[in-house]
Nucleic acid binder design. Structure first.
Lengths: 198, 198
DNA sequence: TTTTCAACTGAACATCTGTTCAGTTAGATG
DNA sequence: CATCTAACTGAACAGATGTTCAGTTGAAAA
């Protein structure tokens, strides 16, 4: 059986997303360098050449996955529209971070592990977006300092420390584990709040 | 110019360590799957085949790097011999973790990023060692709870959270940066202490 | 019905991969 | 001096790599 093109209707709007989904899953599992275009193609159900209808090259595939993840993150954060005093906004940020990241473990994994496989200009673009995200937290910490409710010796270091703590969650949390997400959320919020409070 | 074997004395005690150093550096930089045996050999200054005098295969090279890092970590922790009440031991653990990890960014990077490239039995061995390390911190947190000086809703979650926070430091700290190590140590100890205190 | 063309195949390209091994070299040994 | 052998070379193996592209397919348009 050969020549399976156009089996049942136009496929580009099905195959396209499937390529991204499959690439994300395989890269999260084995790493970018360890996954071949032929492996991705095989899981999608096409030949390797067909992938190049959806990405100019392998590097762009990785960059697209990371860029869209970061864009989703920044858009969702903007939509969360944190308000109130610094403590309320810190709680909002903490809960937002956990709720956004926990259901996206593959994206988180790829976005944090495959930075070194990005071409320099792509790396710079992702880093800029990550920096934007970090700056939101740092602004909250600075505001809390100004309000006199937070006591952090160095807002930049505290920002990095808190984000590392929150993101680390994605590396060990497994759905259906001992603790539900809202329980986890409460525990982390407790740690975060106390860490920065006076 | 060909046939350079045994240039100036026995080399195995020089080449052996150089293979490990070079492999560690290159794997930290580009990732295990992205580094070839020929690249490592070229930087060491030998042909690819010569590497097999020092490792049975590429997988063992990775495993050796990770196992020796974890063994060093556990030995150093035991040598630190944390004593006193839970608060003193928590401070000891925090400062030990930072002092041990900061000068070893390549080892930390490889040990946390390349877990998925380990063969299953090797993965299990590394995970067991990591678990041993985590358990030391968890014991301290539990002791602090018993002493009534700590208030952590879940010692396991707090353990993972604190270790993620501390280890994350290695991912952004650069020697010669804005802050010296002892400054960093103080800032992190402040965050850790407050996070778990009543 | 014939034509069109997006979506795909399958083969090819040059190059790289981990690993093996017969052969070479030169310092150490007797 | 000759001998030994640890340490290495260089070639080879079978297969995988990203990417290109002429050709094929079949549903939809004319």
């Amino acid at each position: 059986m050969q020549g399976m093109a156009r089996k049942q209707g136009s496929h580009s709007d099905i195959t396209g997303p499937r390529v991204l989904e499959t690439a994300l899953r395989l890269i999260a599992q084995h790493g970018f360098a360890a996954v071949s275009m032929r492996q991705i193609a095989a899981e999608v159900g096409v030949q390797a050449g067909a992938l190049y209808n959806y990405t100019p090259d392998k590097q762009s595939l990785l960059f697209d996955l990371m860029r869209s993840h970061m864009a989703d993150l920044l858009n969702a954060l903007a939509a969360a529209d944190l308000q109130g005093d610094a403590l309320a906004r810190l709680e909002g940020f903490t809960r937002f971070h956990i709720r956004f990241h926990l259901p996206r473990s593959d994206q988180v994994f790829v976005s944090y592990m495959e930075l070194r496989n990005l071409a320099p200009e792509n790396f710079a673009a992702i880093e800029a977006m990550r920096r934007d995200y970090e700056d939101v937290l740092e602004d909250i910490l600075r505001a809390g300092e100004a309000e006199g409710i937070f006591a952090v010796p160095d807002t930049r270091v505290a920002t990095m420390a808190l984000i590392a703590m929150l993101t680390g969650l994605s590396h060990w949390y497994r759905e259906g584990g001992r603790l539900a997400m809202n329980k986890i959320e409460a525990i982390y919020w407790d740690l975060v709040r106390k860490a920065v409070s006076v």
